[in-house]
Every structure is written in structure tokens, then in C-alpha cells.
Design a protein around this nucleic acid. Structure first.
Lengths: 290, 290
DNA sequence: ATGTTTTTGGTAAATTTATAACAGAAGCTA
DNA sequence: TAGCTTCTGTTATAAATTTACCAAAAACAT
């Protein structure tokens, strides 16, 4: 390898700050499928990154290469070294860390959780749950507990952009009984309850159930007691090399649900989203994305 | 991949008998360090194999390619596929659903995000950030924005069990200036800022920076402007087949950080956790885990 | 808002790279 | 060994890629 044993990928990342907008765009494109894209002709790379040909030439020189051919040549050397290296450690995630590093162990566990969880999901039920969540006729209640309220709020925040008739209830709050006064049998509850399961959440679910509301439950592999009241349950595997559980898998499900619901309601959502954008722009809360 | 899903390496080996002496010599040179040598210029390949330039051109056509550029192009495709695929033996995740189902597509994207993100992380920096977050001498501020405050809160909730001297600030709140009055240079800010980046968050970071506090930033691949003030930044890839971004990868990092910090502080944490357990038991907020 | 600096893309020249044509060398057969 | 076929390398030509230059556009500071 060349300079101080840094890979070109490293060098690009370190220089990222010294690069201009178009160059950064290009850099990301290179890293996107590294190193293959950098091994093609300069013009192809430029087209793939939507920048001009000279931009590529300039950046390569900025990175310290004499020209594009030299850049490619070093890329090939790097590839040669990597392939030859007996420790072809494709089984680690953070390649710079040993496989015993927690970054790798934790990631292993999460991927495993995802695999298990997705393997057990019934797509029909998932779609059905999404359809209920998308139905604007039904008032949608989103419920979380002490830890899980973060998941609940994540869902709530996105649903806000998608549909009206939406309430976020924190089961640990002592105000929740008030919310339930008007619940009727067309309404839907999306409840999050993972170990350690919370009594409040169960009580709340019972009341909702009595009133005839539909219940969709996100829980863990051991299943919250709420699942006996639920119309549809999704159990995520949440084990991790940690004293706590991992919410990554349930989050994945939630995000997929958000995306599905928004596809189902695209006609309406579009307007809502544009209206939201406008509001944010007006309040200048956000910077425009570059 | 091209013809019948055979790799180019396979194709060369099959054709080996139909090749002439010089061509065989060349073929072995290509396979010697495959695929790097084939990705360079034709003339270099010829020189490396001690054959003439036209020999290379002829053999490539014998293998069924229109010309050397096409040969290279397919080699690159092969490489791209190989890099992308170390674990993709699982072509579908939700086995009961077709691979085009959003459950599978979304999961693919998230796994891909994880791979990219972890591949770029420097473990030393990660460990350093965790060490700072674990240091009970430093007051720890956790900051999130409109959407990211859910991640921030997730971190906050767990850190509460691990260490004292902890504050959760929502940058969209108008109360945050008050929190910053007592900040000094030993303090640490863990800031979440993903697109669309928020002005409030940047302002807050600037003030913290001025006061000399350390800043650890969780952002996306395009990097929040805060990163210029940050001592340590972690960029997650967050793209998903959705109108919104995926927080799954940053969550993975956060959870790994929680676990690391808790390992670092285990002596103290243990007591804190037991005390917490007691409190929860007393208030009967939770049911015992079965 | 205005002028200045930086960034960016278009274009053309220069260099490199690939292909084609040809002639000499090597191998094979009789 | 002569004659034929096949293979290989040298040279020349064509195509492509890269680089340098310049003008327009964008960003920035005043």
C-alpha cells in the first residue's frame, strides 16, 4: 500500500472536508461501490457521479496523485493486496477492528435478530396492519412505555406527516385515561411493549380492547401479555451482547410500516408533506439540504 | 454477471485448452492476481505476462468479448457484485414474501447501510468517544433535533441507568439556552443531526464549542455542518426505499455505544442498576420478566 | 445589492491505449 | 528439408481517454 499504509478509501474520507460540493458528491460515488467504480474510465466515473470530467481529474490530484492513471494503479495495488491477504476477513463488519470488537459482535447480533424476525413475519398480516394504519377513517393511537415510547414517538412523528387523526399516548403518563374516553370500535391502537412489560400498557390495552378498538402490537420474542388482546402482533428478536436489548429490529419494522403506509396514501400524503415542507421553510427551522 | 452466470475466471479456465502457448502464458498471469491485473491497461497486462500487445487483444476476443474495454467492464461488474455480496446468500429476508415486497427491499437497504457504515468507522475513535461518554467527571449533554430527538432520548434513557451528570436537550426547544449556562471545557456533547440539518442544532453546537466542550456527533453520510466543530463524528448511511430516511443504522451505533459505556463503568453501573430495579419494583410500574 | 473569489463545466489539445494489418518465426506434415 | 499452416511480435492507424485552459456560474464577503 502507498502513503503510510492508508487505503485510498481512508484518504478520501480524511480529505472529505477539504473538498468542494461537486467533489464530495464524487467522493461519495466512489465510496458507494468501492473500489470497482474507480477502476473504470474517468469519464464513466464522472457520469456516474453526475459531475463533469475535469472535476474528477482535479479531485484525484487533490488527493495527491499525479493523475488519474496513477490513482487507478494504486487502487489496483490495494485490491491485489487485499485479495492476496490470507485474512480475507469478510465476516467482520468494522473492518479495521478485530472481530471480537463490540462493534462487530453487536452488529452480528443485530443482523441475526433481523434475519430471525423477518423470517417469521407473515407478510399478509403486515400488509393488513399497514392498511389499518393508513385508513384515515380510523383514529390512530400510538402507545409506548418507558423505553419503547421512543419507538412510538418515531412512528408518531412520521405518521403526522402522513395522516390526520393521530394521538401519541405514553402509557407511563398519568394523563392517558383521558385520551381513551372517545375511543370506539373503528379506532386502531399501535402498541409497543417489550420486556420488561409494563402494567400500565396492559391496562390501557384492556380498556381499548373492551371498547372494541383494533390492536396492533409490536413486542419482543417472548411476547408481551398484551398479545392476547391484539389483533395482529409482530415479535422482534431483540437480544444483543449488552445488558440491554436492541431496538434496531423493531425500528426496522416500524420504518417499513411507515414507508408502506405512505405508499398506500400517497395521493393525500403528497399534499400534506408539501404543506409541512412549506411550514418548516417558513420557520427556518431547517437548512436546505445541499 | 454475463454468460450463464460464470465468472470470467471460470471462463478462462474452461477455455484454457483452446489457447495457444502465449495465450496460456497470459491466462495464467491474469489468474495469478485476479482480478486486479485485468483491470489495468492492456499494455501493462501484456508486459506483465511477457507477451505482445496483440496477443492480449486476440485472446480477449477469443473469450467472447467484443474488445478489451468490454472485458474490463465485466470484470468490474463482477468485482462490484462480489463486494456487495459477502452475506447476500439470503436473497429474501421475509421468506414468505416475494423479494420485491417492501419488507425485503427495506431490509436489504438497511443491511447495506449497516455494512457501509461499519466499514468506514474507525474503532479507535469509537472507543475514544465511548470513553468520554463514560467519564463521570464530565457532564454529559445529549442533543437531538426534530426527528433525531428520539435517538437522543433512547441514548439518554439508557445512560440514566449508567451514570449521573446527564442532560437531555431538545434543540427545537426554546429552553435550551438555559442549559448551556454552566457548560465548561470538561463537558461532553453528544449531538444528533441528520438531514435536514437544523439551524438550532448548529447554533447550540457553536455555543458548546465556544465554551470548549467536547463534541461527539452522530450524523448521516452527507454530514451535518456541525461536524466541523465536532471532535469525533460518526456518519451513518441512512438511505431507504422510502420518502424518509432510516434511523436503524445510527440506532445500532448508539446501542453499541451504550453497551460499551456500560462495560467501561461496570463497577458503578451495577449498583445504579440495582437501585433502579428496586425503585421500579416498588412503584410496581413493571411486571417481573418471566 | 455589488464586487470578488471560488468552483464548475465545456472544449480542445495531447497523450495514452486499443485495434488492425502485415511480416517474420515457429511448428507441423510429408 | 520443403512447403504449408499457425502463431507471434513489430509497426502503423484509429479511437479513447486524460489533461490543460478558459469562460460561465455559484458562493461568499462586504
Amino acid at each position: 500500500m502507498s502513503d503510510l499504509d492508508l487505503t485510498i478509501s481512508d484518504r478520501i474520507q480524511h480529505k472529505l472536508d477539504d473538498l468542494t460540493r461537486a467533489e464530495r458528491q464524487l467522493a461519495h460515488s466512489i465510496l458507494e461501490n468501492y473500489p470497482a467504480s474507480g477502476l473504470g474510465p474517468l469519464s464513466a466515473l464522472a457520469k456516474g457521479a453526475n459531475v463533469s470530467v475535469p472535476t474528477v481529474a482535479r479531485m484525484v490530484q487533490k488527493l495527491g496523485f499525479k493523475g488519474y492513471p496513477e490513482f487507478q494503479s494504486e487502487l489496483r495495488e490495494e485490491l491485489k493486496a487485499k485479495v492476496k491477504n490470507p485474512i480475507a476477513k469478510h465476516d467482520t463488519w468494522a473492518e479495521r477492528a478485530p472481530s471480537e470488537h463490540l462493534l462487530n459482535r453487536f452488529t452480528d447480533a443485530v443482523i441475526d435478530n433481523i434475519r430471525h424476525t423477518l423470517g417469521q413475519i407473515e407478510p399478509e398480516l403486515f400488509d393488513k396492519a399497514c392498511a389499518m394504519a393508513a385508513d384515515p377513517e380510523r383514529h390512530l393511537y400510538i402507545v409506548g412505555g418507558r423505553i419503547t415510547h421512543t419507538l412510538a414517538e418515531y412512528l408518531f412523528l412520521h405518521m403526522q406527516a402522513i395522516r390526520p387523526q393521530l394521538t401519541h399516548i405514553q402509557s407511563t403518563s398519568n394523563a392517558w385515561p383521558h385520551y381513551l374516553l372517545d375511543v370506539n370500535q373503528d379506532d386502531v391502537f399501535i402498541i409497543f411493549d417489550m420486556r420488561r412489560y409494563e402494567n400500565n400498557t396492559l391496562k390501557l390495552a384492556e380498556i381499548a380492547h373492551e371498547k372494541g378498538a383494533k390492536i396492533v402490537l409490536f413486542t419482543d420474542q417472548w411476547r408481551s401479555p398484551v398479545h392476547q388482546l391484539a389483533d395482529i402482533s409482530f415479535s422482534s428478536r431483540i437480544v444483543a451482547p449488552s445488558a440491554w436489548d436492541s431496538a434496531a429490529t423493531p425500528l426496522l419494522l416500524v420504518e417499513t410500516m411507515i414507508s408502506t403506509v405512505q405508499n398506500l396514501t400517497w395521493g393525500d400524503t403528497k399534499d400534506r408533506m408539501e404543506a409541512l415542507e412549506d411550514m418548516f421553510d417558513q420557520t427556518k427551522l431547517f437548512r436546505k439540504f445541499t
